[in-house]
């Protein structure tokens, strides 16, 4: 029961983190013409953040004891 609530809170947190990462103003910080290792900053940022959110969801939901 306890862990179930915890998993729920983690998922809600993942949702909120995603909402912040994928929106203004955080997004605008990376909105410039620059590249890291040949990858445009904004492109790299969005995919990285996306992968992190997915990993967070997977961690929260699969770690929950069946």
């Amino acid at each position: 029961m306890h862990r179930r609530i915890l998993a729920g809170d983690r998922l809600a947190a993942a949702f909120l983190v995603g909402c912040v990462l994928f929106n203004y103003p955080l997004l605008s910080l990376f909105d410039r013409h620059a590249a890291i290792a040949g990858i445009p900053l904004i492109y790299g940022y969005v995919f990285f953040a996306w992968a992190m959110v997915i990993a967070l969801i997977a961690w929260a939901i699969e770690r929950h004891v069946r």
């Binding site: 809600a12 994928f22 904004i42 967070l56």
Partner: peptide, 21 residues
């Protein structure tokens, strides 16, 4: 529009976080 195609897929990602509810 560059990465303007992406929100259509980021939205579902976020909603899947809430999918459990």
């Amino acid at each position: 529009s560059g990465i303007g195609f992406l929100p259509v897929y980021l939205g579902p990602t976020l909603v899947m976080a809430l999918g459990w509810f």
